[in-house]
């Protein structure tokens, strides 16, 4: 469990976690949100619109049935993008 160890390490001394100066924090926050904004403002890729279409169609076909098959149905779309 390397991952678990890494998480434990970074959680040591929560009270002594270093704090940034407010000015640096502001700049960093702005940079982060700017980075996010660039991604968020991209149009939703077609693959996701198609995926939701397929999920909705699969749901319609098996209404009243369990939905155990819908995820494998959707997973197939992963290969054809």
């Amino acid at each position: 469990m390397k991952h678990g160890e890494a998480m434990a390490d970074s959680d040591n001394d929560p009270l002594e976690a270093p704090k940034l100066e407010p000015a640096a924090q502001t700049v960093l926050g702005r940079e982060l949100r700017h980075m996010y904004h660039q991604i968020v403002s991209e149009p939703v890729p077609d693959r996701f619109v198609h995926l939701l279409d397929q999920l909705e169609q699969a749901e319609g076909r098996r209404s009243g049935d369990t939905d155990s098959g819908s995820s494998s149905q959707a997973r197939n779309t992963k290969t054809d993008r």
């Binding site: 959680d11 929560p14 976690a17 270093p18 924090q25």
Partner: peptide, 13 residues
């Protein structure tokens, strides 16, 4: 979470 955020900010800076 607070601790992680502070550490992340400090390291990124």
């Amino acid at each position: 979470i607070k601790s992680r955020v502070n550490r992340a900010r400090a390291r990124l800076a």
